[in-house]
Design a protein around this nucleic acid. Structure first.
Lengths: 134, 134
DNA sequence: CTGCGCCTTGAAGCTGGGTTGAAGTCAAGG
DNA sequence: CCTTGACTTCAACCCAGCTTCAAGGCGCAG
């Protein structure tokens, strides 16, 4: 029924993480407990997608606890379901702010990377929009 | 010459961080050593902007060490200047990836926040683009 | 039945990013 | 003078997020 055939090592390799990290995630409830074959964890390919989502969420500034709440398994009708909506509403502006900040930083980096000037004054990484030293 | 009049407490308050964090940043070289008046740190308003840049960079996934390298004080002509360019080139695609991932997460959150369905199946936070359960 | 490779667990250790606490300094005010 | 309050240093502590270690299990090849 579940074509859970992947071992933890395979999943880790494909998702670009480590087996120990996956075990850790399961321990703290960020990932669900997988099927077992004679004690060993077995995964479906969906687990890889889930890990990638988890990675993206982490990069977006979510703590593991938040990803657990947001992307954990909640069935409809549970109080958790409503809680997820609330949390999502809370996090939305934070993610928006992150995107905006990251875009600003991106501009700075682009300027720095593109700068071949002899003196940093002309292309300094600093001063996102600050005048200073004028 | 330097109109450094702000105390660490004032800067911390305005930048939305803590005095101990600022001392820590100075200790590890992420921020430059400020002027002193009878032992006490004094800052110009530029310090607040710098702290805000630091915060943005952190949110964008930079380690403090990276911000030290990127946004630290390098004078023109130093080897560091070139190193900054290299690092900036390295980080650019990472920041791009971050922005993309964050945008994806944003979509997920927006869906979740907007979902008033009774059952999570219709609006589940999971499955960014995965079919699954089909 | 031995070795190999990958898996298991639990506990302990590590790194980054700070915070907290103790003990002391300085300037102003009563 | 002495307190008050915001600052100073240094070391110790804390938390999240893993990694590493020790001791052992399972299945397969030789």
């Amino acid at each position: 029924m579940t074509d859970a055939t992947l071992t933890i090592g395979e999943v880790a390799g494909q998702a670009g993480t480590s087996a120990s990290a996956i075990r850790y995630y399961e321990r703290i409830g960020v990932l669900p407990d997988p099927d077992r074959v004679s004690g060993q964890r077995r995964y479906t390919p969906a687990a890889i997608e889930r890990l990638e989502l988890l990675k993206a969420a982490k990069r977006a500034g979510f703590t593991l606890e938040e990803t657990r709440l947001l992307f954990g398994d909640h069935d409809a009708g549970t109080p958790a379901h409503d809680h997820v909506r609330t949390l999502a509403e809370q996090k939305l502006p934070e993610v928006d702010a992150l995107i905006e900040h990251a875009t600003q930083i991106r501009e700075l980096l682009a300027r720095a990377a593109d700068c071949h000037a002899e003196h940093l004054d002309e292309c300094t990484v600093l001063q996102p929009r600050a005048p200073a030293r004028g």
